[in-house]
Simulated scan of single mutants.
Amino acid sequence: MQKLALHYNNLLKGSFELKKLNFLFVFQVNCPGCFLYGIPLVNKLYKEFQKDISFLGLSTAFENFDLNTAANTKLLVNNNTIIGHTKKALKNQGFDEYPYTIDFPIAMDKIMNNSEDLEKAILHICSINPNYTSFSYREQLLFKAHVKAYFEKLEIISMTFTLNQLKGTPSFILFDDNYEILYHKFGHIDSNELIAQLKSFVKTLS
């Protein structure tokens, strides 16, 4: 079972305490679907499951790096300010700012900024490759060099998003107190299906 590599600096809203069950919502501020669909869904889940599940919303950036920033995330958290494509989408619905509360804690994905972070990232990607340990020493060196070259081509590396090889936003991840990923979905998912999954895990681990 794959472990979640969760990296963030200071929380921008609320507090996060690791529990037996934890729910991670990964979003970008320049992601209309995250706001029209993702946040209302997570608010609903938070209201129903917060006693049994610890929640964290993680603002990240894998594109539009000038918009998907910590500064714009702070504006969202403090003033309900929206930007970019998100602002355009909500303006079409008659809103100049985000019209809903964000009920769950929010943090910003950690940006890789030194050689120590890079080395940890390379080792992590190697560790989640199921064939890595069966490679010869030379093959392992070549694979590590390939991963390093991939990282060095990226303009900005958001560590949680990149190390977990997420497909995009919104992403929804349920994990336990050992950071083992129990459930992972990307994009639009049926809320009833997700609620049923969470109830099942809560019942199993209670």
Results as ranks from 00 to 15, higher is better:
residue 24 L to E: 04
residue 196 A to Q: 14
residue 162 T to D: 05
residue 112 M to F: 03
residue 198 L to C: 10
residue 80 N to F: 15
residue 16 F to S: 09
residue 107 A to R: 06
residue 6 L to V: 08
residue 174 L to A: 00
residue 77 V to W: 10
residue 153 K to R: 14
residue 152 E to L: 09
residue 89 A to G: 08
residue 27 F to E: 02
residue 179 Y to W: 06
residue 110 K to D: 02
residue 114 N to L: 09
residue 42 V to G: 04
residue 38 G to D: 02
residue 112 M to I: 11
residue 118 L to D: 03
residue 31 C to V: 06
residue 137 Y to M: 14
residue 95 F to P: 07
residue 2 Q to N: 14
residue 83 I to R: 12
residue 191 S to C: 10
residue 203 K to S: 11
residue 202 V to P: 09
residue 85 H to F: 11
residue 46 Y to Q: 01
residue 176 D to K: 00
residue 180 E to N: 15
residue 131 N to L: 14
residue 190 D to H: 12
residue 57 G to R: 04
residue 153 K to Q: 15
residue 97 E to Y: 13
residue 48 E to P: 05
residue 6 L to Q: 05
residue 98 Y to L: 03
residue 144 K to H: 00
residue 101 T to N: 15
residue 50 Q to E: 15
residue 117 D to V: 03
residue 23 F to I: 00
residue 60 T to M: 01
residue 65 F to A: 03
residue 36 L to R: 08
residue 114 N to S: 07
residue 4 L to V: 11
residue 71 A to W: 06
residue 84 G to E: 10
residue 87 K to Q: 11
residue 137 Y to C: 04
residue 176 D to V: 02
residue 198 L to N: 06
residue 169 T to H: 04
residue 178 N to K: 14
residue 170 P to L: 08
residue 42 V to L: 04
residue 28 Q to F: 04
residue 190 D to L: 10
residue 139 E to A: 11
residue 66 D to H: 13
residue 41 L to K: 08
residue 117 D to H: 13
residue 164 N to H: 09
residue 85 H to W: 07
residue 140 Q to A: 04
residue 67 L to M: 07
residue 71 A to M: 03
residue 14 G to Q: 10
residue 177 D to E: 15
residue 205 L to D: 11
residue 59 S to F: 12
residue 16 F to N: 05
residue 71 A to Y: 12
residue 139 E to R: 05
residue 199 K to A: 11
residue 147 V to R: 09
residue 159 M to N: 01
residue 134 S to E: 15
residue 48 E to Y: 02
residue 111 I to A: 00
residue 185 K to W: 02
residue 118 L to T: 15
residue 154 L to Q: 13
residue 119 E to C: 00
residue 41 L to Y: 07
